[in-house]
């Protein structure tokens, strides 16, 4: 019998697939729907900021041949709304991870405490938003600052602290600093800063000009990052980027991820894709003779 349960620090997931931050995670009603209709292992909320953010004007999404470029602009009702949102979620054993995008370590710590008080099972520090100034990648590419934020949040929290890093040259250094400061897991990667220009409009499509590329185009890059992180850190890794089917997910496990999160594929294939991916992993493990996800984790590193 295949066992799909995984643990990320203190979090117990019934399946190794998480809903990544940003898709269907800004209101309690969509979160409840994902819990009701799928076998999702855990849900990461949309990133919450200190103040409410309306987000950018449309267009907020643009086409590329192997992915989506988005600049939603961290639309969220502000962290104080977490009380009501978390209060209305019917968890059914699905851990809720609250994602936070703040601009100072103090804000990160305060929002994290508020989330914990109101029932969050873990927090994910988004240190990698590619298109909102002062709320993302600038922070994640400074390993010292990453260490400082994690330390500050860790020291006020009991629940696990996950750090979400994006593609930068110093991602391994940032992950090492996060681990040293007490992070319980690392998520990688976020979408990658991009621009799309329409050749007939002769203008960038996104109102914000810059957006984040996600979807199949970024998958091999994300696998490389997870592969490198696995060689350097001990804490669990959540692989994110371009998963469209079970093969992509298994690839992440083999590279070193303990669990996998998905976002864009929901737009491409609908909610049902979650169970399709889980079933595919189950069948693969059954046919290939694996009983537990942990047997797959990092297997591609063997000699």
């Amino acid at each position: 019998m295949v066992n799909l349960k995984v643990s990320i620090s203190k979090l117990k997931l019934k399946t190794p697939i998480l809903l990544a931050s940003g898709v269907l995670g800004s209101s309690y009603s969509t979160i409840n729907r994902v819990i009701r209709e799928t076998r999702i292992g855990a849900i990461v909320t949309k990133s919450f900021t200190w103040e409410p953010r309306v987000g950018y004007n449309t267009p907020i999404v643009a086409y590329t041949k192997a992915g989506i470029v988005n600049a939603v602009g961290l639309t969220n009702p502000g962290y104080r709304a977490l009380k009501e949102i978390l209060g209305n979620i019917v968890k059914n054993d699905v851990p809720i991870v609250v994602s936070i995008a703040a601009s100072t370590s103090k804000e990160y710590a305060e929002i994290a405490s508020f989330a914990e008080e109101n029932g969050a099972d873990a927090v994910e520090l988004n240190l990698s938003c590619p298109h909102v100034k002062g709320h993302g990648l600038e922070i994640g590419q400074d390993p010292e600052y990453v260490g400082k934020i994690v330390h500050e949040v860790r020291s006020v929290l009991k629940i696990p602290v996950i750090v979400k890093l994006g593609l930068t040259d110093r991602i391994v250094d940032s992950a090492l600093k996060a681990e040293k400061a007490g992070a319980d897991a690392v998520s990688a990667i976020n979408s990658i800063r991009s621009v799309v220009i329409d050749v007939y409009a002769r203008k960038p499509i996104l109102s914000n000009i810059y957006g984040g590329l996600s979807g199949p185009a970024i998958h091999p890059i994300a696998v490389r990052v997870v592969f490198d992180l696995y060689k350097n850190i001990e804490i669990p890794i959540i692989g994110i980027g371009g998963v469209t089917d079970w093969v992509d997910a298994v690839e992440f496990f083999l590279a070193g991820a303990s669990a996998v999160a998905i976002a864009s594929v929901i737009a491409i294939k609908g909610l049902k894709v979650i169970d399709e991916i889980i079933k595919g992993i189950e069948e693969y493990m059954d046919k290939e003779g694996f009983q537990k996800i942990s047997e797959l984790v990092g297997l591609a590193h063997g000699n």
């Binding site: 940003g22 898709v23 269907l24 995670g25 800004s26 209101s27 309690y28 009603s29 969509t30 979160i31 409840n32 729907r33 994902v34 949309k46 987000g55 907020i60 999404v61 989506i68 988005n70 939603v72 639309t75 209305n88 976002a263 864009s264 929901i266 737009a267 609908g270």
Partner: peptide
């Protein structure tokens, strides 16, 4: 279907 801007509560 990915930004969450058009959601009808409470059914999601």
């Amino acid at each position: 279907g990915i930004c969450g801007s058009c959601v009808l509560d409470p059914k999601g």
